[in-house]
Design a protein around this nucleic acid. Structure first.
Lengths: 127, 127
DNA sequence: CCTTGACATTGAGTACACTCCAGAATTTAG
DNA sequence: CTAAATTCTGGAGTGTACTCAATGTCAAGG
């Protein structure tokens, strides 16, 4: 099944402008019909979902682009793509540790504020 | 102890331009000396460290600004500041869940690619 | 057949968080 | 005392990821 950019936009929930921007960046390059209109496929739906996911993991467009280039080159690039995924996984694991550190930091700060509040109340009490 | 912007910049490892930008945004507003030069204090060092931490947790400047405004208003605003910290902690907890989801997603994709590789090798084997 | 709507391209504009630059004043080192 | 360094302000420029506007082409519905 083929979709024009408008319909595809509604399916994947990305604006037509963004889709054209992604194309300019080489993330997704649909075929064109006889009058030069973009023809997206169901395959493209899956691909966009993957892109959306990579984006959510915080991967910048230029890295997704690298992945896209490899993908458009075919199956011989699977190991290169695997490496990119491993790298990203590695980053996310690091993010996870950092994130826990940030939560701990906030917890400490919150604790400090609670103690400040308690001491203010203690002063009021003693009046 | 007081520091000029250059020295302070070296202490907190933030460029003088960024410090002036932070001041314009109201994050940190140092006193000025008799010839209008910024005078940062040790207290400011601690405050900047806190800002850096909040930034690392992904808090946008305008939210840090809210926090800074409350802080400059004094101790009466501790509960408001506590709320901001709780909100941010809440976001980070949500990020944590999302992050795990992303890692799982990558793991699945990596798994898929490994299987593709295995099947390619199986084909080569059978030749 | 003609209007409406979807699509095309190019280029400009936006938000965020810096980053850099020009021109002036003041401070410090030699 | 002079030259170099530091700081000041205002404003322009950068990169990322869109987002919007202007202008033009094509196709299907009434």
């Amino acid at each position: 099944m083929n979709y024009g950019i408008g319909k595809f936009s509604r399916i994947v929930n990305i604006s037509v402008d963004t889709l054209r921007y992604y194309e300019k960046e080489g993330l997704i390059v649909p075929k064109r019909d006889n009058v030069n209109r973009r023809q997206y496929t169901d395959h493209d739906v899956k691909w966009i979902d993957f892109i959306k996911r990579l984006k959510k993991t915080g991967m910048p467009i230029k890295d997704i682009k690298k992945y896209a280039k490899l993908r458009y080159r075919g199956n011989e690039t699977i190991n290169d793509r695997l490496k990119l995924l491993y790298d990203q996984r590695h980053r996310l694991k690091a993010d996870q540790v950092e994130l826990q550190g940030h939560i701990n930091f906030l917890d400490e700060k919150i604790q400090t504020y609670h103690e400040m509040n308690a001491s203010v109340e203690a002063k009021l009490e003693s009046k």
